[in-house]
Design a protein around this nucleic acid. Structure first.
Lengths: 159, 159
DNA sequence: TATTGTTATACTCTATAACTATA
DNA sequence: TATAGTTATAGAGTATAACAATA
């Protein structure tokens, strides 16, 4: 007997829909996992109405007060042209501000506002909880370390 | 002495731009790796002018001749409304065709054309080479298996 | 009533070109 | 001549609503 069917749907020996030629691909599974994590991020940060890129920008400004737009854009691989709308939104929400940069009048110095700093504390707490959640799903900090190493092996940008 | 500077730029003790609060995040590294892999996919498949989603659709049709649009769309998490433009493009390029489905006149039965089947062979060869490249970057098939398992732990869709 | 395919539409993300004011 | 910020614009990808034909 060569019964290849699953337990489900045994009435008529229906031919199954085969997906393994796609679902076995590393890139496909990588994309699926990334989408799942970002969707969970959106749920966890729903009260703040912030996307992952917004969080990253706020975190970098918090760690580098007075930094230039181009520094953050480069660090996050965002085109400086696209960064403008992003930082405008954060500024319009009262979370960040642009001041005159000393010594180079082309660039803007970025800072968190007092409200932005306060918000950042709540964001950091939410992010820490979310990160702990991810680590738990992975099976602990050792598994997380293995995972980050494997991700970095794929992320190198040799063409 | 508490010198925290790197070897580079020692002239003036310039303060470094700190990114570790973002680059240490699982979701951030996951996104970076996914982008790198998809960009390499685009390079490897440049001669075909096909995106990952196009390849996946062709592969599923090859494995499930006569399948319905909704089946492929569901398997790949593509909205059926967005699937229309995608399959139209593949059809306009002569790779796939829609025929009348037997037993349900609402749905279309999808098939590869002879040209599509021939193209699929070259695509499969390119994909196999690309997959081998990914596996090598990861450090072998055992590392790949570990990686896929870790991805699946993150990809579960419990909110 | 529910499902399949379809159209229309809108919103996000990303990429490029060109402009300005500075350096 | 090169850089930082900006504007405008175009292309993907994705989401929803609504409709016709069919189940």
């Amino acid at each position: 007997m060569t019964d290849t069917g699953t337990a489900r749907e045994t009435k008529k020996a229906r031919k199954r829909f085969r997906t393994d030629s796609v679902t076995g691909i590393v890139g496909y599974r990588l994309r699926r996992a990334q989408l799942a994590v970002f969707q969970r991020f959106q749920l966890r940060f729903a009260e703040f109405d912030l996307r992952p890129a917004d969080y990253s920008v706020l975190a970098l400004i918090a760690d580098n007060p007075g930094c230039k737009q181009i520094e953050i854009a480069n660090a996050l691989r965002i085109k400086r042209a696209n960064f403008v709308a992003l930082i405008n939104r954060l500024e319009a929400r009262g979370l960040t501000e642009r001041r005159e940069a000393v010594g180079d009048r082309r660039s803007q110095a970025l800072y968190l506002t007092p409200v932005g700093s306060e918000t950042m504390q709540a964001l950091k707490a939410t992010q820490d909880a979310f990160e702990a959640e991810c680590i738990e799903k992975l099976g602990g900090v050792e598994a997380r370390d293995v995972f980050l190493d494997l991700l970095d092996r794929l992320a190198d940008e040799t063409p």
